[in-house]
Design a protein around this nucleic acid. Structure first.
Lengths: 228, 228
DNA sequence: TTCATAGTTTGATCATAGCCGAATTATCGC
DNA sequence: GCGATAATTCGGCTATGATCAAACTATGAA
């Protein structure tokens, strides 16, 4: 007779440094090959194979075979949320690791984190909105202020529809490359949708890296920073 | 040069079965002594001491010395969220552990979670109230609807007094034996008080298990499900 | 076919860390 | 003061699992 979820199994998988590095590398949403992940984790291919097999069979990663390559990716949003939650704990407690997350500059600049915008641009937007009183912290949770509601209303964001569900309107998500907060939740998702819909940004093939055109980036920055 | 939060450190702490059992036992919100946790984890006191020292020094647990006892508790909401996220992943992937949190059936059926009712009956009540529009999710937080206010008003719950303090009126609390939400917050506490005051239920010596009489359970179910 | 690259399997090594028994320190009740 | 109980420290045993080198399989390219 078995009862209760076995969190130890899941946590111990993430709790091994090599595997944690792999998972963090995949947190960009990009699918990576076994060799890429071996490099990220700092282990040899055989070792990586073993780790990846465990992660896949436990349901933390998914795999897609393509020719002689095998591309791995985070299995689902629940895994992403668990990793984000662990990041938050580690960050609060001041535990730092030696190796950074996404190395490549383009990816640091703009990428999506599941369904919302992450990377430097997202962090900048978050900072700007905090500074101008659109967002604020209230008892540990992120809140959209009255001013923020006016602000978004004037920009055509239907936030009423976004806060109907169980998922929070605003959540902060710790960005591991910038080590600062950015906006998640349904509002964060909506903003990424909008940027794509307006043609400012395009998702790459892998669906998770987001590239802004030069003009799109200017428009986006203007969009979120224009007063009133 | 160090970058990025070390999630492997945090995850590996939770990833050890004995420690995971301790953390799960503390997820009720109740502070437990070292000996209690040793029993929960199925290890001897010396082993428990070692684990607890690691958990405390990593910032996952807090400790309160009281006489010759040391009471441990989850250090903060971020830790709780991380554990809940891991529960969600483990539950989705179908990983079950052999040892349940609350071992005996009576305790799964009805017990108190710190100061509010937990277990199957609480989960049923929560589901019923969600389905009938007494409670709803709004931007990630639990809300008592207008209908819910009428409903409770008609049942003699003075919810105005309950929402005056710093503590929220409604909170959801994840039940690890049922893996579903139940009602916490001052309203959850009040309902347990009421059930005890009306003689429907009695707290056991250890304060954690709550036993309903057969008649009390019927009355309680009728109380929360009667329309109007 | 032949070579090269991606990835896996095998087998052996080795370090980490979980575990307990016994002895030790601290606090309560008497 | 003296026992009793809570908790810790110490020392040594043991098992788990991370690691890599080398050999092997599979796919793609020439």
């Amino acid at each position: 007779m078995k009862y209760g979820p076995d969190i130890a199994l899941v946590a111990s998988l993430i709790g091994e440094p090599a595997r944690a590095n792999m998972v963090l590398a995949l947190m960009s949403g990009q699918a990576l090959s076994a060799a890429d992940l071996a490099r990220e984790a700092g282990v040899t291919p055989p070792t990586a194979t073993g780790h990846l097999a465990k992660l896949v069979s436990a349901g933390l990663l998914g795999v897609r075979k393509q020719g002689r390559h095998r591309y791995f990716e985070i299995a689902g949003p629940d895994v992403g949320q668990a990793v984000e939650a662990l990041i938050a704990v580690a960050a609060r407690a001041g535990h730092l690791r030696t190796r950074p997350g996404p190395k490549d500059e383009a990816m640091r600049h703009a990428r999506s984190c599941y369904d919302h915008l992450a990377g430097r641009m997202a962090v900048d937007m978050f900072g700007h909105w905090m500074a101008s009183g659109i967002l604020c912290w209230r008892s540990g949770a992120l809140h959209l202020t009255r001013k923020g509601r006016d602000f978004l209303g004037g920009r055509g964001i239907a936030f009423e529809a976004l806060e109907s569900g169980k998922r929070p309107l605003c959540r902060s998500c710790m960005d591991w490359s910038e080590r600062r907060h950015h906006l998640a939740g349904t509002l964060g998702a909506e903003i990424l949708e909008m940027a794509v819909a307006k043609g400012w940004a395009a998702r790459e093939r892998n669906m998770r890296t987001v590239s802004f055109s030069k003009r799109g980036e200017e428009n986006f920055v203007r969009w979120y920073s224009r007063p009133g």
